[in-house]
């Protein structure tokens, strides 16, 4: 039985080697995730264009969400590239895979990282200029409607927020904590408040279409203390502390097998990194024009030649500059 298994492994690796030799000259099929939010779709479109037009790959977009992408990576080793993976919402499933050597992180696809925090609408700050930090809000909860819009159950931020609420004694300050059932209702509650210019206070993150469309002001929860934040990320702790959210790592990840198979593409993806301000600008433009992610990607490719031409190798740069004059 053992011999038989070895024979199969030998044959399989032989085939794998042959195919990697064949692929050395050209790029084969590449699957890349397309998460169900706007910034990730733009990143995927840009990466797809660079890979197809610069390197001659055949790119397949895989519509996914964070948990489905991680589960699929863990169980099937597919898709090849997972991009805009928010580390804080993967639980320990991702770190387990990384430790086992199944996947490798290539780059922070958003620089310096995702912005998380507690926000109020801009019009509310204009109306009540005394609202400068979370402390000011808790001193007068009525100004923000007396309600904190919390993350849904099962999100990483839910645990952090619950601990922060305990540490800040929010309930004692007269702040009702409302736990949303899904990201959709959380986003819609912002939009609905904005339509009526009503007070709103709660957690959100960016770059997102919501923060691109609705001007929000991030209130300081306190100083950033990474130790306290790491502690706050655990459930049911005895001593929650106060720390603002540090920039969240948002990664591009590839399977170890893919890195071996398509080293040129792995090198490209290790350089693909969007500045958060650039991404926010793109998202705002997209919302304003009611454009698709693809059209936003074209805008990026046309306007930020200096940025993406540093990502690709010389050969691809020549091909791409012929298209994007």
């Amino acid at each position: 039985m053992r011999k038989f298994t070895l024979a199969i492994i030998g044959a399989a690796s032989g085939i794998a080697m042959m195919s990697s030799v064949a692929n050395a000259a050209s790029c084969g099929k590449v699957s890349i995730t397309e998460m169900n939010w706007a910034s990730s779709q733009i990143i995927t479109e840009v990466a797809k264009f660079l890979m197809e037009q610069g390197y001659g790959c055949k790119v397949e977009k895989v519509p996914s969400a964070t948990t489905t992408a991680v589960a699929s990576l863990a169980e099937n080793g597919e898709p090849d590239i997972v991009t805009e993976l928010w580390l804080n919402s993967t639980g320990d499933a991702y770190s387990k895979m990384e430790k086992a050597g199944k996947v490798e992180r290539l780059a922070d696809v958003l620089a310096p990282g995702g912005v998380e925090g507690w926000w109020v609408p801009e019009y509310l700050v204009k109306k009540h200029p005394q609202l400068k930090s979370v402390k000011d809000v808790l001193a007068n909860p009525k100004l923000v409607g007396g309600r904190f819009n919390n993350c849904p159950d099962g999100w990483g931020c839910r645990i952090v927020n619950d601990n922060l609420a305990k540490a800040l004694k929010m309930k004692a300050a007269g702040m009702e904590i409302f736990n949303h059932g899904s990201g959709e209702t959380l986003a819609t509650s912002i939009a609905a408040a904005y339509e009526d210019k009503k007070p709103w206070f709660g957690y959100y993150w960016g770059p997102t279409a919501v923060l691109g469309k609705y001007k929000m002001v991030k209130l300081s929860i306190g100083d950033i203390d990474k130790k306290v934040h790491a502690n706050n990320s655990n459930k049911d702790i005895a001593n929650p502390g106060v720390s603002d959210f540090p920039p969240a790592p948002v990664l591009t990840v590839v399977t170890a097998a893919f890195k071996k198979r398509e080293s040129a593409i792995a090198e490209l993806m290790s350089k693909v990194s969007f500045n958060v301000d650039t991404m926010n600008g793109l998202l705002a433009w997209k919302k304003e024009q009611k454009a698709s992610a693809e059209e936003a990607a074209v805008r990026f490719l046309n306007q930020e030649k200096g940025t993406w031409s540093k990502w690709v190798n010389a050969d691809a740069r020549k091909k791409l500059s012929a298209i994007l004059k």
Binding site: E45, F49, Q53, Q289, A291, S292, E294, E295, A296, A297, V298, R299, L301, N302, I323, L324
Partner: peptide, 8 residues
């Protein structure tokens, strides 16, 4: 806004 196909 321009689509990929138009760009190509």
């Amino acid at each position: 806004p321009m689509s990929m196909a138009e760009l190509l």
